[in-house]
Simulated scan of single mutants.
Amino acid sequence: MNDKYSPNLDAMLNERYYLKSIEAKGARIKYIPTYLGQEFSNYKKCIKDTIASNVLTINGEVFTQEFFIDEYNYYFINWCIPTAKKLILENELKPVKIDFKGIIDQVRRNEIDQNYLPIALKNEQPIIIAYYPMCPQPSVVIDGNHRVLAKYDAGEKTINTFDLPPHIHLQAMTSELDRLLYKIHHNLSCIAESIAGNLPAKDVKRKLFTIG
Rank of each mutant, 00 (worst) to 15 (best):
D3I: 15
K205L: 14
F68Y: 10
H167E: 06
G26T: 07
Y18N: 00
I51M: 12
N187K: 00
S175G: 10
N78T: 01
A201C: 08
D113K: 15
Y35W: 15
Q171F: 13
T50V: 11
T83W: 08
L9H: 03
V62P: 00
K157S: 09
E193N: 14
L164C: 04
T210Y: 04
K86T: 13
P166T: 08
S21Y: 04
K207W: 03
C190D: 05
N110A: 13
F100I: 12
I127P: 00
I58P: 00
I47L: 02
K4A: 11
I77A: 10
L149F: 02
Y74Q: 12
Q137N: 13
N160S: 14
E111R: 05
C80Y: 01
P7R: 04
L208P: 06
V96I: 15
S139R: 11
G144L: 03
N123P: 02
Y132W: 06
Q65E: 15
V96T: 11
E176F: 10
I128A: 10
L9A: 03
I159H: 07
V140L: 09
F68M: 15
P200E: 00
C46D: 15
I29C: 04
A120G: 10
K94E: 09
E124M: 07
Y75S: 03
R179K: 14
E61G: 03
C190T: 08
G60I: 05
Q125G: 09
I191R: 00
Y116L: 10
L164Y: 01
I77T: 05
P126C: 09
A196T: 06
K48V: 09
I142E: 07
G37D: 10
T83K: 15
V141N: 00
C190G: 04
M12R: 08
K157Y: 03
Y116E: 06
